[in-house]
Write a protein that binds this DNA or RNA. Structure first.
Lengths: 355, 355
DNA sequence: GTGAAAGCGCTAACAC
DNA sequence: GTGTTAGCGCTTTCAC
């Protein structure tokens, strides 16, 4: 069909081996020969077929990426980070989407393994007892997790300290005088990190002597959110004054939903998100959130993976620092006059580094 | 290394040909034999090597995707659409990012061609006189464009009527009583669609007898935005009261920048975006924008491409309908009392369908 | 219904 | 410094 290395060799009047050597720089080629070959390549419009090479070398120079969804900018940022980091190493990304579903995870991973990707970066619903990861472990193909909780020994996992971050959110709410906290989250069964954030949040509330926050699970995509919010805020007596959302996208939806319920943020309800997606800072009021270094997390995971591909040993968990971004969606509790319900600009806090 | 079709054949005591036939359903295999093979596959944990198959069939079942950036949710949505559509056809996506740069476009396309993708979906800076597309045309690999203006004859292009949409924005501003319009855009050299939107916008302003809008180009990523805004709004006399931004991300930044300049939206300045990214609807004030069916555009482009791969003929341009989303960022001009500066809920307008 | 064998485009010994 | 050659894992005639 298209022009092969053989054609180039014939045209330049050398053997295919010499062309291959020139292409890969594996061994020296006489300058004059090289010149002839380059010309042949130019004239014939030769484009090396990576499929042929892969079959021979059993390296595809493709990296698999499996993420739950592209709709959440947090993952787009991560992929972007993975891409920048791996591109300069000569890798190209092969893409799989799991839709927060364990079966689809398996399907995606299985597909990428058939393509013989050299390694994978992925975020799974839950690395504990995860069939897709079992598949990967059995296959021997190196991989790195992003965002997941470090629960598999010997597995590279790039994440933040979700639990401590959750605790910090509770602390923050408490310091603003809030007593009745709540958390709204996507399904915990579909997100180990959401679970960790909840655990920290509950622990934080308890540490401050507050009543256990109400925890509400919602389907991430569905718009049962309105109903959930209505019921959560119906009982005037026990309605929470501060809500922690398991991620920014959800927080944005929640703020919208509250508005439709006639509740103002932060005057009536304070809201905290998680992720630190760019738009949060551009909203009005600006979203208070836990900022993860999403792009950098992707880069770091990619870096770890490439390191392993180059013969390095698997690193353990890599815990990157998060940041608390004070936003205008958090205000003082029990504010009779909404005039002064401005969120004080409480200073940025650093997450902890990896041990 | 891993288990091959040969191993399976040996284990099931058949020839590799039979295993292959079973795998591809290309020809009937006796039920009993099939059973034995299936068992062998199961026990051995055989995973067909697509690289081997690709080399033989010269089809990789990979589709290339090249987009300017993942940071803009509009492209993430598109990729998501492409993914859903092609996944069920058995394709997997190989990923390239061009960063709004013509040279990087070439690099990305060239890389994907080396991997021998069966086809590509891409958005380029400008399809006219585009080296990457020339490369593609020469290669004979089918491709479909998304978002770009239909300028290459015989090339499948899925887009909206950017020019008319731009005109509609001018109309809308005019109907709110605005006289001094402006447009802030990313580099036109990096976006043919931004240029089309500008052309329509200018034509629309002219049609309403308004002075030519000031048009400001900004580097898409850099934050020279503040300076640009400051100069645009400095001369109190001629400062515009309505700004059309070439995309939503930019509009969001502009609104933020205006706020820092002490200008309120929409009381002091009206703002219109373009794209219809999800967060725009969740902002406060909600962003007025031209909504493109991004996900559907990705799906449609993928559909067209797959059609061609299945022997179909290249369709011409496919113009999908856009929608004007009225938002709260557009208000009446010359409003002495900001109390009534609410944006009336002007009804949704349909874009035109393809001829 | 099944098997034998050729070959897709490339790399990497190995010989010279 | 260059050529010859044997596959990598698979599909696909062509026989039987």
């Amino acid at each position: 069909m298209s022009v092969t290395i053989r054609d180039v060799a014939a045209y330049a009047d050398v053997s295919v081996a010499t062309v291959s050597r020139l292409l890969n720089g594996s061994k020296a080629v006489r300058t004059e020969t090289a010149e002839r070959i380059h010309q042949a390549i130019e004239i014939l419009g030769f484009r090396p077929n990576i499929v042929g090479r892969s079959l021979k070398t059993s390296r595809t120079m493709m990296l698999g990426v499996v993420i739950p969804s592209l709709a959440n900018p947090v993952f787009a940022d991560t992929v972007s980070g993975i891409e920048t980091e791996t591109r300069q190493e000569g890798y190209t990304l092969l893409f799989g989407v799991s839709g927060y579903d364990a079966d689809d995870e398996i399907r995606a991973v299985e597909a990428l393994l058939r393509y013989r990707v050299d390694g994978l970066v992925l975020t799974v619903v839950n690395p504990e007892r995860n069939a897709a990861l079992d598949l990967l472990d059995a296959s021997g193909v190196p991989y790195a997790l992003v965002y997941n909780q470090p629960s598999r020994p010997g597995t590279t996992t790039v994440t933040v300290d979700n639990e401590t971050a959750g605790r910090m959110v509770a602390e923050s709410f408490a310091s603003f005088g809030h007593h009745r906290l709540a958390m709204i989250s996507g399904r915990f069964s579909a997100s180990d990190r959401a679970s960790a954030r909840r655990d920290g949040f509950l622990a934080g509330a308890r540490a401050r002597g507050l009543a256990d926050p109400v925890v509400l699970e919602v389907d991430f995509d569905s718009h049962d959110l309105e109903g959930a919010l209505a019921s959560l805020f119906a009982p005037e007596a026990g309605a929470p004054s501060a809500v922690f959302c398991s991620n920014d996208m959800l927080a944005i939806s929640v703020i919208g939903g509250l508005g439709r319920l006639g509740l103002r943020v932060p005057e009536d309800v304070s809201v905290f998100g998680f992720d630190g997606i760019a738009v949060g800072a551009h909203m009005h009021p600006t979203l208070a959130t836990v900022v993860q270094p999403s792009r950098e997390m992707g880069r770091e995971a990619a870096r770890q993976l490439v390191g392993r591909l180059n013969g390095g040993l698997p690193a353990g968990p890599v815990i990157l620092p998060y940041t608390l971004r004070s936003g205008e969606t958090v205000g003082n509790a029990c504010q009779p006059s909404p005039t002064v319900s401005r969120a004080p600009d409480h200073s940025v806090q650093q997450g902890k580094h990896a041990p």
